[in-house]
Design a protein around this nucleic acid. Structure first.
Lengths: 196, 196
DNA sequence: GTTTGTGAAACGATTCACAGCT
DNA sequence: AGCTGTGAATCGTTTCACAAAC
């Protein structure tokens, strides 16, 4: 029982959200069936997902809402805070700085960079946008766990190289391009597109 | 060779984007290998994806960039326009009305609804927000192919019921809830959340 | 009696590997 | 010689089904 499916992780955060709902409604215990109904999966799926990490339920009874929520937060690494640098102070970048959910989920933006002289020096949420040229120099002091790349596609790979060079091991990429990184660096590219 | 993987469809629109890039660069022909490199997959994957829909390449040569792009647009139903109604004139809703990419991709918003009296009557892009109570009455005249639900979670199911009742067969759901619909209605729930 | 936890079976997607066309 | 198209093999995920726990 080693490798955990990526899809399991995605569902785990869903479950957590539902548990928090149940918690708010004063529900003390849920069955895998109830969780599944809320999330549009099956009870077997819920149980298998959880079983990757241990056994948190009581047979014949279900799961303690509060306890399971706690365990999930633990598994998902919530409660822990992450230092993140943001590269790109354009539209998405500045939206992210102001987005409260980001901070709520444990992500603290500790610096913002841009290459456009018109954007450098502008303050967002009390943080002054710095020149991307200073990135290499600043990173050792910032010690960010995560970098968020929100540059145009043509700048993304260059920025990524600098980040990797400086030892960043996790990148969240909003640029519409496949970033080339060493195996020990995790990249998650998010697709800002709608399709049907 | 009947059922086409959902993931194949997702990749197809990626391929199309890359082909348009190549087209812009005056490239006349691509191999599956070249497309794969651009998109971070493998050549076998590209060929298998395309093979679900026919054989568009020339052995020993590759694919005609222009022709393949045309075929993909055809397969993906682009070029066709869709009439969409938007339910919810809140933050995301109003962003969507103004989002140009939506229209560019063939989606024409033909009406906007909200239940909040303060929002009803407000014009977005020259379109006046109407009261959601009028939905049932209006839909037969609007004949929308798609409805986009951007209401709060507690209103979403109710709105959905009305839409289904009126014969809408495709719903794009931004509310953080699992919508319950008959089998012949397609729902795509999009998750406005960031995780890592 | 109810509901979990989990091997085993079924299913679905990706990768391999090669025959066949250009 | 080069590259596609595709069955067959492989790999990963979901579903089944049931013994064990309460």
């Amino acid at each position: 029982m080693r490798k955990i499916p990526e899809s399991t992780i995605r569902r785990l955060s869903l479950y957590l959200r539902f548990l928090e709902e149940f918690e708010g409604q004063g529900v003390g215990t849920v069955s895998s069936e109830a969780l599944a109904a809320r999330g549009g999966t099956t009870s077997a799926q819920v149980r298998k997902d959880l079983s990757f990490f241990g056994s948190f339920g009581k047979r014949g009874l279900g799961y303690g809402v509060h306890e399971l929520a706690r365990r999930l937060r633990e598994i998902l690494g919530l409660g822990r805070r992450y230092r993140v640098v943001l590269i790109g102070a354009g539209k998405i970048g500045s939206a992210l700085v102001q987005y409260k959910g980001f901070r709520q989920r444990g992500f603290d933006i500790v610096a913002i960079y841009d290459s456009d002289p018109a954007k450098v020096g502008v303050a967002w949420n009390g943080m002054i946008t710095r020149d991307v040229q200073q990135l290499a120099e600043d990173l050792p002091g910032l010690q960010p766990e995560i970098a968020v790349v929100v540059t145009p596609a043509d700048a993304a790979q260059d920025v990524t190289n600098r980040l990797v060079q400086a030892g960043v091991k996790a990148i969240l990429n909003f640029a519409p391009i496949q970033l080339d990184v060493p195996d020990d660096v995790a990249v998650k590219t998010v697709n800002r597109a709608l399709e049907l």
